[in-house]
Simulated scan of single mutants.
Amino acid sequence: MAQAQLTPTVMPPKTLTDRYRGAVIEDLQLPPAFALPYTEHVSRVIELAYDREFSHIPILDKRRKPLGYVEVARLKEKWEAGQIDSNDDVSKYMVKFKRSSTVPYTLITPLTPLNELEEFLKNDIFALVTDYERKFVLAVATSHDLEEFAKRGGF
């Protein structure tokens, strides 16, 4: 009887998918998103941001679609320097999302794999997690969220 020869199994290099073992954004257990309407006054935005210790806040239009975000530290800095009227609408100071045919929109949902989120966050400071139709902002995900998840999961 001939002996079967065992050939070593060559494992593919470890990929980002392996790193998170198939986990998706909902596995991060992110708190619900905190977003504000574009008509909110600067003074209220600063107050709410510091109460919750947020550094960036998504800004929404009247249909709750994301328009952009405000960098809280920069907003507060301008306010303290007297460069902003506290009754101004936050939309005057937000960073607008780029929407064009040359800049594709990356849909990030609760079921987006964490490896895709990690790739996205290489070029962006946070990701807005939305429903599939992009009607509602559900959460905000950051690199810090990924790092904490990796620590908890031993990745």
Rank of each mutant, 00 (worst) to 15 (best):
M1W: 15
M1T: 14
Q3E: 15
A4V: 11
Q5M: 13
Q5I: 15
Q5P: 10
Q5K: 15
L6Y: 14
P8S: 09
T9G: 06
V10M: 07
P13L: 10
P13S: 09
K14C: 15
K14D: 12
T17H: 13
D18E: 14
D18Y: 01
Y20G: 00
R21F: 14
G22L: 12
G22N: 10
G22C: 09
A23Y: 06
I25G: 01
E26A: 09
Q29P: 08
L30T: 04
P31H: 09
P32C: 08
P32N: 10
A33K: 03
A33I: 03
F34L: 07
F34S: 12
A35E: 07
Y38V: 01
T39W: 01
E40G: 01
H41R: 08
H41T: 07
I46G: 00
L48C: 07
D51C: 12
D51N: 12
R52A: 11
E53W: 06
E53S: 12
E53L: 12
E53M: 03
F54S: 04
S55Y: 09
S55R: 11
S55V: 05
S55H: 14
S55F: 09
H56D: 11
H56P: 08
H56A: 14
I57R: 00
I59K: 03
I59R: 04
I59E: 03
L60V: 13
D61K: 03
R63F: 15
R63P: 09
R64W: 14
L67N: 06
Y69F: 15
V70M: 02
E71Y: 12
V72W: 01
V72D: 03
A73L: 11
A73T: 11
A73N: 12
K76P: 00
E77Q: 11
E77N: 10
W79I: 00
W79K: 02
W79D: 03
G82Y: 08
G82Q: 12
D85A: 09
D85T: 06
D88Y: 00
D89T: 05
D89W: 01
V90M: 01
S91C: 12
M94R: 06
F97D: 03
R99P: 03
S100F: 08
S100V: 09
T102Q: 05
T102P: 04
T102N: 11
V103Q: 08
V103K: 02
P104T: 02
Y105M: 13
Y105A: 06
T106N: 11
I108F: 05
T109I: 07
L111H: 08
P113C: 11
L114E: 02
N115I: 07
N115F: 05
E116V: 06
E118S: 02
E118W: 02
F120N: 03
L121I: 14
K122C: 04
K122V: 05
D124Q: 08
I125N: 07
F126Q: 04
A127L: 03
L128D: 00
L128N: 00
T130V: 11
T130C: 04
T130A: 00
Y132R: 10
E133P: 08
E133F: 15
R134P: 03
R134C: 13
K135M: 13
K135G: 14
F136W: 12
F136I: 12
V137G: 04
A139S: 12
A139F: 05
A141M: 15
T142D: 04
H144K: 11
K151G: 04
K151L: 14
K151C: 08
K151E: 09
R152V: 09
R152N: 12
G153S: 13
G153V: 15
G154V: 06
F155G: 01
